[in-house]
Design a protein around this nucleic acid. Sequence first.
DNA 1: TTTAACGTTCTC
DNA 2: GAGAACGTTAAA
Length: 803
Amino acid sequence: MSGGKALGGARRRRTRCRRCQACMRTECGECHFCKDMKKFGGPGRMKQSCLLRQCTAPVLPHTAVCFSCGEAGKEDTVDSEEEKFNLSLMECTICNEIIHPSCLKMGKAEGIINDEIPNCWECPKCHKEGKTSKDGGDGSGKRRMDNGEVGRWKLTDDPPPTKKKPPSSSEDGGRQDGHKRKKEKELPQDSGPKKKMKGAHEKRLKKKQKPNASETAESNGPNSSSAGGQSSGGSSNPSQPPTSTASQDQRSHHREKLERFKRMCQLLERVRESSSSSSSSSESDSESDSDSPSGSDGRRGSEPSSPVPPSYSNSARERNRERDRKLAELGFSASEDSEGEGSVKEEEEEVALEEQGVGDKPRRRGEGPPRGRKGLATDGNDEESGERSRKSTPLPPPSPLSSTQPPPSSGHAPPPVSESFSSKRSNGSETRNGRTRAGVRDRETQEKENANNSGGGVSVSNHRHGAAKGNKGNKIRSNKQAGSQPSSRNSSNSSTSASTTTSNGAGGGLLGASGNPPGGVSALAASPRTQPSRMAPRSQMMKRSPPAVPSPPRPVQMERHLVRPPPPCPEPRCLPLDGGSSHVMPRDVWLRVFQHLSQRELCVCMRVCRTWSRWCCDKRLWTQIDLSRQRSITPPMLSGIIRRQPVSLNLGYTNISKKQLMWLINRLQGLLELNVSGCPWSSVSALCQAACPCLRLLDLSRVEDLKDSHLRELLAPPADTRTAHGESRGARFQNVTELRLAGLDLTDATSRLLVRYLPHLTKLDLSQCSNITDQTVHTPDLPDVPTEGEPHARKPGRLCEGD
DNA sequence: TTTAACGTTCTC
DNA sequence: GAGAACGTTAAA
């Protein structure tokens, strides 16, 4: 562990994709592990999932964030495969580092994508250093297991159920054994731990060595892996002298991981075979992998001709700084590190928005040769492949919940990578065995307290977008079929791409304002949503959910967390002092004082103590929130917004995602003014699925790609509320009185929409809408429309429904 | 807070 | 080496 840490790789446990066939099935109740479960009458000691439910595409946890920038995967914010890849999180099987390829300072081309596992690769760094984990067998598709049974992808190469019978048959005995063992352990408690620690370490070393030997053999050629499912695929690094325990540990871990991967692959192979005879080519697959243009090219990764945006870090830093500054101006402290702890952290947790759930993204790079490891094309090539994919593969539907991650760093200068990394750890997901769990616990505790105090938080509905859930995976990869995949309804997000990469500290800071230390960010997860396209074959096995979902993108889990709206009167009523007494000034008086503070100052106050933090969140102090031009809207920000329940929200020129926007809107029922100008339509389209009955002002100026048809979609009432004649009983924005459409590519057709669906419109801004002609201007029931300049007012009440 | 289960260590 | 145990993590 420590070794792993030292090497910078965060060890993150992967988690179920929840979408693959295995994940979707129920426990068999008969396998070894099921029988161990309490629900099946077992002792529950093994704590393993049903053998039939071994996830075939374990994903990175929601909390995963980029080692470099601290943000989650953001592939859903961009369109092209190329960008998606760059913005997705990739976990290196060697160093365990999770990073956005775009954040790499070196040529991405050197990375070797493990197509079998979502968001998995051998990062360019490791690869370049010769750390190849020799998981050569990986993409070879040769790890087919003989037993046609579904196996686990886990390292613990569990024999297939059938094989397992023997042990399970003797289950009772085994159980007893277990008890016995436990008892024995329990008795000599004192010496136990020590022994354990020591022994563990030694064993580790041992383990390491063994695998190495076998690995070497394996590493000699991928073919060797065809030996069978049981083969351990460890990664051998002959080139890496076992210099230290740490490194050994690390390697051991990698090996295990690789094994797991391989196992999974084997499983997939098996499934494929069993599900379709046509899947003839498991082997050829692997071959094609290596043959594949991008594969071979990338693999050997010619020296990265263009090593990644050289200016990235600098510019990003600048932007961060800029953003911090702006946030500060906005009243959100961009950088409260961990200082403000208490209160601050509370939110963090809640916040961890569902954003994380983001997921259902189709696997990136669905184009190329489906499976196996693939080398990244060099930049140039990449582009090409990107192009290709664009042509041949429909764009994956944008994931509704794109999550922009909260940057880990504080508002202070972005910490050096290593620093941010470590801080990240301490904040959230710690490495295994909870060595560093203190921080987390801390937060949890606080959260609890907070929960208690806030008197019943409102649980935000955890609606999982069922549809998304069901379909998204589908859209995913299945590379081979990719070409035929219809890009679904959500036209992909438009290109805010570049912008998304930045956002470091500031974002978190924002919420930091609400008290969240940027570190909280780490808690937010990033979802490893996109994955390299591979597993085409796997698709075949997923019959239930059409487009197979080998490594399902994360389910959309938007609302897993509680985000409590501000209570009418934030508790407590008095300010408790250390001595147990209360401050002489009661809450109401304090609130009056706070009313005279700027939002920025409020943020400062929030860091004073938990009580102030709560009080300062009073929505009366936050009627207007302006986050415009914040490149990264992070979950903490969203949470912070909800907690403050503003009546006016400016999200102009942000890269807020559709999911985020939807999530927000659905929780801001009292919102009167919304500004989403300059945002991409792919995000703004979230409004099509939301209800904003109270909204009075809607600013859609310069929304990217917004067309007449989109506006229609946006303004028209939900289908089920229309009459047979298509007339609306209640348009979505029927109470909007001011609409800003400046700079949009609209035509005169729009005027009809406005007349029809915005009966109370009194102000309309059509400035810089070059396609609007006099016809619109002269539309009788429209407000006096200025095509340039200020929006004009008109006499209200002239519009008629269905007009 | 609870449940599922991953990943490592321990035991046989 | 296989399997059991279990601490810890992730998600609900």
